[in-house]
Nucleic acid binder design. Structure first.
Ligand SMILES: [Zn+2]
Ligand SMILES: [Zn+2]
Ligand SMILES: [Zn+2]
Ligand SMILES: [Zn+2]
Lengths: 168, 168
DNA sequence: TATCAGATTGAGAATCAATCTCAAAATAGA
DNA sequence: TCTATTTTGAGATTGATTCTCAATCTGATA
C-alpha cells in the first residue's frame, strides 16, 4: 500500500537514518530494530511494549535508543494517561497530531485541528523559547459513556490501550 | 493578604471539604493535611514532595488522598516532563492555567491564554465526550538559552523545579 | 456519653518502570 | 586485517507507586 501515512513513515525512516549517521552513531542491528518499529507505528508506543515486541534487543538498548532519538529530535514522549509514557516519531515535515484519551478504558485516539495549531503558535512568553507542544483531551470514548452506575470497581473494557489514528 | 489567588485557594478548600463530606468520607487529620497542602499551592506539586513536607502523614495516605481527590474531580494530574507527575487543584470556577516546561532544567511556569481556550472548546469528535484538557509547551527558559556548547554532560541549573504562576 | 460498624491509617513489603554497570561483542575506518 | 570506538545486554539497582492488614479513629446512634 502507499497511503500518505505509509509514505510519511518511509520519509521518517530515511530522515532518521541520515541523522543517526550524521551524529556519528554506528548502524547496529539492535538499534535499527528499534527505529524500524517506531517507523511502523502511527501513534505512540510505550518503551516496555517495544521491549516486549523486539526479540534480540535488550531492555537497556531500547531505552538507550529512545533517548538518542529524542536527543536528535526524531521521537517525542507523549503522556498516555494513568502515568503511562509513550513515544512516537516526529515527522520532519512538522506534520503531527494530538491525543484524545479515554479516562475510563485508557484508549488513545489521535486528532488534528488546524485552528488549535494556529492558536498555539500565537503564544509567546518573553524569556521562553517554545520548541514543541503537547495537547491531550481527556474524557470518555463512546464505549465508556457516562453516567457510570455507582458500581464500586471499574471494569475497564478490553482491547488495546492505543488506537492508531482514526482521523475523525 | 487577599489576592485573587488566595481567595481561589479558600474557595477550593471549602468546595473540597464539602465534596469530601458528601462522598461520605470521614474528616481525618492526615487527609486534611494533604488537602490543606494542596490548597496552598498555586501550581503542581509531586506526590513525593507532599509526602516529604507532611510530617505525621504516611506515604500510603498521601497517595490515597490524592486518588480520592482525583476521583472527586478536585485535583488533576499534570505532566512535569522527565516522567515526573504533579498534582494541582481544580478550581470549581473552571479557571485554570497550562504549563511551560523547560526541557533543560525542568523549571515549570504557568500561563493562561484565552484564545487557546476558545480553540480547545471548539474541538468536538463524535463519540468522544471531552471532560478536560492538558496543554504543555516545551522549550527553553531564559536561563537555559540555546545553543548549548557541545559539552558532554548537562549541568542542570539549580533551583526549584516548579515555579509558581508568573503570569507573563 | 457509650457503643460499634465502617472508614482510615501507616510501616513495611511488593511491584514495576527506568537506569546503571561493565565485560564482551560489534562496527567503521585505516 | 587491525584497532580504537561504539554498542550491547544480563542482571543489579534505583526510585516511585501500590499493596497489605492489623491497629486506630470517626460519626452516627442509643
Ligand atoms: Zn499519537
Ligand atoms: Zn500541535
Ligand atoms: Zn500548574
Ligand atoms: Zn485550558
Amino acid at each position: 500500500m502507499s497511503t500518505p501515512a505509509r509514505k510519511e513513515a518511509a520519509d521518517w525512516l530515511t530522515h532518521a537514518e541520515l541523522k543517526i549517521h550524521d551524529a556519528g552513531l554506528h548502524r547496529s542491528t539492535p538499534r535499527q530494530k528499534v527505529i524500524d518499529l517506531l517507523a511502523d507505528q502511527d501513534c505512540a508506543i510505550t518503551a516496555l511494549e517495544m521491549d516486549q515486541r523486539l526479540s534480540g534487543v535488550g531492555r537497556a538498548t531500547v531505552y538507550r535508543a529512545i533517548e538518542q532519538l529524542e536527543d536528535l529530535g526524531l521521537v517525542q514522549k507523549v503522556d498516555l494517561g494513568k502515568g503511562a509514557q509513550g513515544f512516537e516519531k516526529i515527522d520532519p515535515s512538522g506534520h503531527h497530531h494530538h491525543h484524545l484519551v479515554c479516562e475510563h478504558c485508557g484508549r488513545v485516539q489521535s486528532f488534528e485541528d488546524e485552528r488549535l495549531e494556529k492558536a498555539i503558535h500565537r503564544i509567546h512568553r518573553r524569556g521562553f523559547t517554545v520548541e514543541s507542544h503537547e495537547i491531550t483531551l481527556r474524557g470518555r470514548c463512546s464505549d465508556c459513556a457516562r453516567p457510570e452506575p455507582m458500581s464500586v470497581s471499574r471494569p475497564a473494557p478490553t482491547g488495546s490501550r492505543i488506537n492508531a489514528g482514526a482521523r475523525l
